[in-house]
């Protein structure tokens, strides 16, 4: 039973870039930063590709933002997604706005399943998947993970972790809970959000990268979709973690032991 799966590709700062808080203390210095697809979303793309490789179907990738998000859409297309939807929005937007846009795209595209990152690594809000499921009135399988390790044979064989029932009408998802695994089942259509341990995303092949350049990117706008993207949630303060104190050198082992005992209280 072919599946149509909608996935997301948020543009986020590359975690290997040096992130500094800006002068206003509410955002980060954007200069010199590198960007990439949100790693949780990339896992969602990978899972979707594995599902359609097994069951047939197509993968549609969506991103909301400026034209820069084409880079992330192309990356998902290069990995193997079939088509891309770009919701063009240049100003600020919050999670409600993004979920609103996604809802309208879902109503238009009519996928059987949406797979989103459980959060994005930039602001770690973790809201969009939940809003989307709520507004669509669909069940949500959050934090999808799997039993096999990322070094397992199943992973090497790119076996999907999300199971589709034989009749194609429901999915089974494994979730990690404290000290164990929880298996949930939901009828389709549904929303799933991804945990880091779900899979290891593939590298885009060069033929894939080249093919991606000619795959279609459909442009939509929030206004065209009838979505109000007025920002309700704003960041009022961004504080970096406290700077680590410089280390000191101790003259001998006795001093080290003394400091570990009496200052660090580690012994």
């Amino acid at each position: 039973m072919p599946l149509k799966i909608l996935v997301t590709a948020k543009r986020v700062e590359d975690s290997e870039s040096k992130i500094k808080v800006d002068a206003a203390g509410t955002g980060i210095v954007k200069e010199g930063l590198k960007y990439k697809i949100n790693p949780f979303d990339e896992i969602g793309v990978e899972e979707a590709l594995r599902l359609v490789a097994k069951h047939g179907g197509e993968v549609v990738v969506v991103s909301v933002g400026t034209k820069d998000v084409h880079e992330q859409l192309r990356h998902a297309l290069a990995m193997g997604a079939n088509k891309a939807v770009w919701v063009h929005h240049d100003g600020p937007i919050d999670q409600l706005g993004i979920a609103g846009c996604l809802q309208k795209v879902v109503e238009k595209e009519k996928p059987d399943l949406c797979i989103l990152g459980k959060q994005a690594i930039d602001d770690d809000q973790g809201q969009v998947g939940q809003y989307l499921a709520e507004w669509l009135g669909w069940a949500q399988a959050t934090f999808a993970s799997k039993e096999e390790s990322l070094e397992s044979e199943a992973e090497k064989a790119k076996t999907p972790a999300i199971q589709l029932a034989a009749d194609g009408k429901s999915i089974t998802v494994i979730r990690e809970v404290d000290g164990g695994l929880l298996t949930v089942s939901s009828p389709l259509p549904a929303v799933a959000t991804t945990e880091l341990r779900l899979n290891q995303p593939r590298y885009a092949s060069l033929p894939g990268i080249m093919k991606a350049k000619s795959k279609p990117i459909e442009e939509l706008t929030p206004a065209g979709l009838g979505v109000d993207v007025g920002v309700k949630l704003t960041v009022t303060k961004l504080a970096p973690p406290p700077a680590r104190k410089a280390g000191i050198k101790v003259p001998d082992v006795a001093t080290l032991v003394d400091k570990l005992k009496n200052e660090a209280k580690a012994l």
Partner: peptide, 21 residues
């Protein structure tokens, strides 16, 4: 790149998408 594949000079290839890759 297209030339490499058209002429069969490489079997497969990939390009790192970010610094981690």
């Amino acid at each position: 790149l297209a030339g490499l594949f058209e002429r069969g000079l490489v079997q497969d290839g990939t390009l790192a998408a970010d610094s981690g890759q």
